[in-house]
Design a protein around this nucleic acid. Structure first.
Lengths: 190, 190
DNA sequence: GAAATGACCAAAATGTTCATTTAGTCAAAA
DNA sequence: TTTTGACTAAATGAACATTTTGGTCATTTC
């Protein structure tokens, strides 16, 4: 990747993270990246594409981290927990992700909404792969992998995000325990 | 309840249902109810309180219907399914509920958002009661009833509402099956 | 001559003004 | 005592002016 492009992406990521997508202007990005505004448009055809590119990097990063969390020697239920925990820890600690999720909640910027939806979809697809692998290996009984991944994801959001809106947060141990009790007991091999 | 009050409540419910909460004016309600606007304020101290009163009725109605769905001869897992199905069928078919949920989604009227949140909370409280009864009777193993009710509710929304945003809708049978497979298997008595 | 640039432009966002609408009140009527 | 609708202060939104901003492209730079 060209040096200029790298500067642009870094500047944009920093500005999005500091001020949000909407509040970041292309002039701002150009200035922060020390390039002319026109240069940005030789690499990206629009502001939205710049955001998409950055979010694609985030997705790769999360997938990488989630894979790091997998330990082939552990059973499926422990690994799926580790993966989900990594994904949501990332979501909760990564500056840019936090800012973008805030922006969706508070302003609802359509471009940001779309891109965060894609992030969710890709996370579900990632979990789905893990489930399919586990089915192939006979670690869990056969099931609709897409649906199962979807439910796992939604359940994790419920426990990790929604519950805290009206109750005391749950400890990671508690979440793991609940996840095991409710979702995984139903998937253990017959 | 006085005749006038009944007229007012009916008119308001009809107007909220047709035009939404925000687009309904108190003059409109007064006209539809054939009363002077001032009369409304002898029964309700504000437009918001009028909405709250109407939603309270809806809550009672749903609770009544959900109780109707319970058959004491059936096991817990079937009853909880029947209750949840009734609750969500109501949500999906009741004109006023539909309109108010749309308004929250499209405009985000704060008063409506608050009142629909209360509806959710009360539904969770209702399910919680059923769970506590089942625990007392030894039909299911002991668990955090609030948390379990919360998860059941969230899972039903995921299957009934969220899944359809990007996939083919699930049949009621399929939902029941999934619910049983994932959530209830983990609750069966040891 | 390929890459980079920033002045430029149309369009979108934002600020401003002002007439209309609306939730809520209260003196008068029923 | 109960009901009412004209009234008011506040909220809304239509209309217009101004500024900002994403994106382009003729010109410059190396």
């Amino acid at each position: 990747m060209s040096e200029k492009k790298k500067q642009i992406v870094e500047a944009a990521a920093k500005s999005f993270s500091l001020f949000g997508y909407k509040a970041t202007t292309m002039d701002q990005v150009a200035k922060m990246a020390n390039v002319g505004k026109g240069t940005i448009y030789t690499f990206f055809k629009s502001k939205e594409e710049l955001l998409e590119d950055i979010v694609s990097s985030i997705i790769s990063e999360i997938k990488y981290e989630a894979n790091e969390a997998v330990d082939a020697r552990l059973p499926f239920n422990e690994n799926v927990q580790r993966v989900l925990q990594r994904i949501f820890t990332f979501r909760k600690e990564h500056e840019l992700t936090i800012k973008l999720l805030q922006e969706v909640r508070d302003i609802g910027t359509p471009a940001v909404r779309d891109v965060m939806k894609r992030l969710d979809r890709e996370m579900i697809a990632f979990i789905r792969e893990k489930i399919e692998e586990a089915i192939a290996k006979g670690e869990i009984r056969s099931c609709d992998a897409e649906l199962t991944a979807f439910l796992m994801f939604k359940m994790y959001i419920a426990l990790h995000v929604d519950w805290e809106k009206e109750h005391e947060p749950l400890s990671p141990q508690k979440i793991a325990e609940l996840f095991d009790l409710y979702l995984l007991k139903g998937l253990s091999p017959r």
